[in-house]
Amino acid sequence: MQRALRAGLTYHEFDVHAVGSGEEAIREAAAWRPDVILLDLGLPGMDGFATLKALRPATRAAVIVVSVMPGEKDKVRALDAGADDYLVKPFGTEELVARIRAVLRRQADVTAGEPVIRSGDLEIDLGRRSVTVKGKPVRLTPTEYELLRYLALHAGKPVMHTTLLREVWGAYAIGDKYNTRYVVAQIRKKLGDDPANPRYIVNEPGVGYRLEG
C-alpha cells in the first residue's frame, strides 16, 4: 500500500517520505517538517488515534486520516482528535491528490491571512462581514452569518455538527443537530443553492458540513 501510494504521489510531484509506525511518524514529523501527513489508522504498534493525538502538538502539518473503517463514529473521532480530513479506503490516487491539494490550499490561505474566502460564485468577506453570490449581496441573519463564517474559515474541511453548535450557539446548545440543519437550509435558500444538489455547502453524512474549497 505504502509503495503504491508513494509511486502515485511521486507521479504528481509530491515529495514523499514514508515511515512504518506511529512513533517513527512523530519523530519524522518534527525532523522533516512535512506539509501534509497521511495517517493510516490501522497502524501496527502504536494505535492510530493515539498517534494522531501525539502528532498534533508536534507539527503544523495538515493530517489526512486514511482508514478502512466505514463507520461515521470513526470519522468524527478522527476529526475530534485533530485530523483535518479523512479518506475511506479504498480510494484512487486522483481522489487522494484532490484532498491533499485542498488542505494545502487552505493552509496557504490561513498563512496569508486572506480576508476574502471564495467557493465558486460565493464570496465571503470576513473583514467587511459581507456575503455575495455572483457579486450580488446576500442578507444573512447573525446566526446564519456566524455559521457560514465558521465553515468559510475551515473551507474544504469537514466541520462537525457538534463543533458548529458549540461555535455558533455556545456550549448550551450542544445536542440539537436539527438547529444546524435548519440554519444551513436557510443559508442555502438565500444563496440560491439547491439542497438536493448543493454547490457551496455540502453534507458530510453522519459528520456535519463542508464548504467547498
Partner: peptide, 10 residues
C-alpha cells in the same frame, strides 16, 4: 482492494 486501487490508479 485498497491496495489494488492505489496501485492501479497510480
Amino acid at each position: 482492494i485498497a491496495l489494488l486501487r492505489a496501485g492501479l490508479t497510480a
